[in-house]
């Protein structure tokens, strides 16, 4: 590439530095791209998991099924009692008819499942949401001893398992990202440091001619900026391709759960990782100028 078209001096110098050692440039960009890519994967997964968790936490958390012959006014009385409890966020009564309608809606295209089914086989139920997940067990235990209750099911275990999985993946992800970010910084430090050393005579001459520290530092910061920018774009490219391939499969994986705004997450993460790459590249280069230029 030629920079005869009035590019600023620091950009010409930065480009010259980058193109002089292609192997080192390639290694730096690859490590940075890997760091950014893994960061972005964890970010997209984390955003998606948070969205799913939010959905799960918003669902009825305890369902209390009553015996078929238990009177409706007694169930409504239990509902009123529950609504007065401080640890209960909401209570919703599902009558036998409501349950039947819901069932019909779910299986409207499956005639064999609808035929010979009436509302009698659906038990009346109360759907309860607790203020805190930790309250679920207390409420469920109390309800299971109540009169007329046939069965109590609650999602504490599902949510807790999912939550601990999200937390663990977050810790693993952050640890991995920290290690990779450190390696990236280190390799930028070495790459820019080697460039500085190979240009030490030139730098000394420029200083003797009256170059300021900023003038000398700028091409190296630009070098770090370009590493970050290119790595950010490469990582974004890979992320976008993989995301488009994965898009159709997300609905299958999250059976029954509404698909989160996955592409929106990908776009946010893509833009963020380009900025992150630039910050990482420039910070590494700045550290290198501090260490090797002693300015």
């Amino acid at each position: 590439m030629s920079f005869n078209v009035r590019a600023p001096n620091f950009l010409k110098s930065a480009w010259l530095q980058i193109s002089r050692d292609k192997g080192l440039t390639l290694a730096t960009v690859l490590v940075m791209t890997l760091t950014l890519f893994i960061t972005s994967i964890f970010a997209v997964v984390s955003l998606t998991a948070n969205s799913v968790l939010g959905y799960l936490e918003g669902r009825p958390q305890i369902t209390v099924f009553f015996k078929n012959d238990f009177a409706e006014d007694k169930i409504l009385s239990v509902e009123r009692d529950l609504k007065n409890q401080a640890n209960v966020a909401s209570v919703n009564y599902i009558s036998k008819e409501d349950a039947f309608k819901f069932y019909l809606g779910e299986h409207k295209n499956e005639q064999n499942l609808i035929e010979s089914v009436s509302s009698d086989i659906f038990p009346p139920a109360l759907e309860i949401k607790a203020q805190k997940i930790s309250d679920l067990e207390t409420i469920a235990a109390k309800m299971s001893k109540s009169e007329g209750v046939d069965e109590v099911i609650f999602f504490r275990d599902v949510i807790n398992t999912f939550k601990s999985w999200v937390d663990a993946s977050r810790i693993i992800g952050l640890s991995l990202i920290s290690v990779l970010a450190f390696i990236s910084l280190f390799i930028i430090l070495i790459t820019v440091g080697m460039t500085i050393r190979s240009r030490s005579e030139e730098i000394e001459i420029m200083k003797l001619l009256g170059a300021t520290d900023d003038y000398i530092r700028l091409p190296f910061l630009t070098q770090g900026f370009l590493y970050g920018l290119v790595s950010g774009f490469l990582s974004t490219l890979v992320l976008l391709v993989l995301s488009l391939l994965a898009l159709g499969k997300i609905g299958i994986i999250l059976r029954g759960i509404p698909v989160p705004p996955f592409l929106q997450f990908v776009v946010i993460v893509s833009i963020s990782q380009i900025f992150l790459g630039i910050i990482l590249g420039m910070f590494g280069a700045w550290l290198s100028t501090k260490r090797y230029l002693r300015i």
Binding site: E202, E204, I205, K207, L208, G210, A211, T212, D213, Y215
Partner: peptide, 23 residues
């Protein structure tokens, strides 16, 4: 250190070893 470049810009030096940039 910050003032040094401005001193050097007022002085032109022909170095004994030339100090030319090879590239």
């Amino acid at each position: 250190a910050k003032e040094l470049p401005f001193l050097r810009r007022q002085i032109g030096v022909v170095f004994q070893d030339f100090k030319l940039l090879a590239m």
